[in-house]
């Protein structure tokens, strides 16, 4: 078990300097995510142009994995349509949970999260933002919990 696999430079950087952090004024959809196990909370708000996420922000308090994952997610999904976001979520899910997962070039910077699967207690930290984004896209206004 190597901590460097979990806390890669990309993760530490996005934790310290989260991208797209804050509330999106005049958003079309938003959702709150909560991990009661560790107290992490985050809100994802987004603007849709047709079927496409034209802008997205997140805010909240969380561990490095949850903050960095949300930050990386906002960068990755901006400009993508729903189907592409769903496809990306499935790739990220495989990355976090499937020991047999191999390098997936479609993941880009999100591949920095591959170390998480060696730390099963932390998978929910990394996936919270994706579940929250899903909830926002599905209902436009929702609260999700990891438990």
């Amino acid at each position: 078990m190597d901590l460097k696999d979990l806390y890669r430079d990309v993760i530490l950087d996005h934790n310290k300097h989260p991208r797209n952090f804050g509330v999106l004024e005049g958003s079309d959809a938003h959702a709150d995510g909560h991990n009661p196990l560790c107290g992490d909370r985050l809100t994802v708000s987004l603007r849709l142009t047709g079927d496409r996420i034209s802008d997205i922000r997140f805010e909240g308090k969380g561990c490095a994995i949850s903050t960095a994952s949300a930050s990386l997610m906002t960068e990755a999904v901006k400009g993508k349509d729903r189907a592409a976001v769903q496809a990306l979520f499935e790739r990220v899910h495989a990355l976090l949970t499937d020991d047999a997962a191999t390098a997936d070039p479609a993941l880009g910077k999100l591949a920095a999260l591959s170390g998480v699967r060696e730390f099963p207690a932390r998978v929910k930290c990394a996936s919270l933002c994706w579940h929250t984004l899903n909830a926002a896209l599905e209902s436009g206004d929702a609260t999700v919990s990891t438990e």
Partner: peptide, 26 residues
């Protein structure tokens, strides 16, 4: 600058077991 959950993981990697979280006292 370090969330308790991250502390818990780093300490565990060193063999040190502590509790992190709200301790059932939100």
């Amino acid at each position: 600058g370090v969330h308790p959950h991250d502390l818990g993981t780093i300490l565990d990697a060193e063999g040190v077991a502590i509790r992190t979280g709200h301790h059932c006292a939100m």
